[in-house]
Design a protein around this nucleic acid. Structure first.
Lengths: 146, 146
DNA sequence: TATTGTTATACTCTATAACTATA
DNA sequence: TATAGTTATAGAGTATAACAATA
């Protein structure tokens, strides 16, 4: 009741997440621009490079992106020779997105670029503080998985 | 080098923040829709209600929103009688945004709505886990303030 | 000259629905 | 009938620059 005197936003999980995300995305995009990537394209490339044969629907769900948006991102990556689409043998509706050698190489560079960018953007002094932050954020980012 | 085998995104602070933010914003907008608010309008109304006399530039910086975007949001809130603009006596370029009585009332309802929505959206069992999350996210959301 | 708020505009992102091809 | 991918499109959000008023 006497609550209105406080700073509601500073206790608001959603606001804090949104603001921190905006900081991170801006820093990430800045770091990836020289490589011709956005954070979204980087995330898609990551899934293609690591989860070999992930389907576009899978990308859509993991990244919480509309399927039609994924089409555009994969189109771009494919046009640049970084990934290719291969239709699944068992279900020819599905297309797996796999990284090409050039895609794997760019992926490695992008991982390094985003890592240092995040270290610069966020004040997490110790490695354990960072580990704890990651652990906590995984629960918030995937709230439905137990 | 053997790093590519892992799941880079699950260790990526930026990706986790972006995904968690998307979950929170969606839940917040759902909870605020009956009140005719978005998370952005709610955040603006919060600042008007709590930091009495905050300037539009101040809102812009705190919310990391473009000044022109703030104009549109304040226009909407003002048109609905929730806030009003008052020009600062000492510097007549600045306009303070203050909540009306109706704005304060809606603000109270919105705080309650977003709180329960977040408790439903995020699995933070104990109060101390929530407190710890808030503390950590404040550092990530405002990385420049020490 | 610099800054606050404003307007206009172009650009991007997002959400929706409809379509195809497979199942 | 249902699902994966695609396309088209309209709506919302974003970024940019220019402008008026004030400092």
């Amino acid at each position: 009741m006497a609550d209105e005197a406080g700073h509601v936003l500073l206790d608001d999980l959603g606001f804090l997440l949104a603001r921190a995300s905006a900081v991170a995305v801006a820093a990430g995009n800045d770091a990836l621009r020289p490589l011709g990537l956005t954070v979204r394209a980087f995330a898609t490339l990551s899934l293609a490079a690591e989860h070999d044969g992930i389907t576009q629907r899978g990308i859509s769900e993991f990244l919480r992106l509309d399927p039609s948006r994924v089409v555009a991102i994969v189109d771009d990556l494919e046009g640049r020779g970084l990934v290719s689409r291969v239709v699944a043998r068992d279900d020819r509706r599905m297309k797996a997105v796999v990284a090409t050698p050039a895609g794997h190489e760019l992926f490695r560079q992008a991982v390094a670029a985003t890592r240092t960018a995040q270290q610069d953007a966020f004040p997490l002094p110790t490695a354990s503080a960072r580990t704890e932050a990651i652990r906590m954020l995984r629960r918030l980012a995937f709230p439905d998985e137990r």
